[in-house]
Design a protein around this nucleic acid. Structure first.
Length: 140
DNA sequence: GCCAACGTTGGC
DNA sequence: GCCAACGTTGGC
């Protein structure tokens, strides 16, 4: 069974619009310098889906992505320690699901987003994934 | 802009 | 191996 994920990005640095502009080819999710986050990326399989979340500005889930390349060396790092996957945009979340909504929803109270807000790549349970897709009107 | 939470570093 | 100091993230 597939796993689900959440990728966090500050829209000033790398936005959903920029991600979508990369189309089916997708883009490397570079810049992660945290072991937990890296290990989650190592566990990802091609085709697994996740949310694209805007941190700081927005604080909301804005899109659905899928993994399109397994973890490999992060070319922006000067050591071999850091790896990244590639992801591509697959669908918009037409009605953005905000952090406030997520926090207020009992079904989502165990999300890592709520309990460890600093982790930039994180797992999402299947029920959480489905629930947020439904709230956001996402068709995937 | 502030600061709490968290992860990492380095002295001992 | 402990823990204080420091840096970073991200919500507010």
């Amino acid at each position: 069974m597939p796993n689900y994920w959440l990728f966090k990005s500050e829209p000033d640095t790398w936005s959903w619009e920029q991600q979508k502009a990369k189309g089916k080819a997708g883009e490397e999710w570079t810049g992660v310098r945290n072991y937990q986050a890296r290990n989650f990326m190592r566990a990802m399989k091609v085709g697994e889906k996740g949310f694209f979340y805007h941190s700081n500005e927005g604080r909301e889930v804005v899109g659905i992505v899928e993994v399109c390349a397994l973890a490999h060396r992060d070319s922006t790092a000067d050591v071999d320690t850091w790896e990244c996957v590639n992801i591509r945009a697959v669908a918009d979340v037409p009605r953005h699901v905000t952090l406030d909504e997520i926090k207020a929803d009992p079904k989502l109270k165990d999300m890592v987003l709520v309990n460890n807000s600093r982790l930039s790549v994180q797992p999402v349970s299947e029920s959480e994934f489905r629930h947020i897709c439904k709230l956001g009107g996402a068709k995937i």
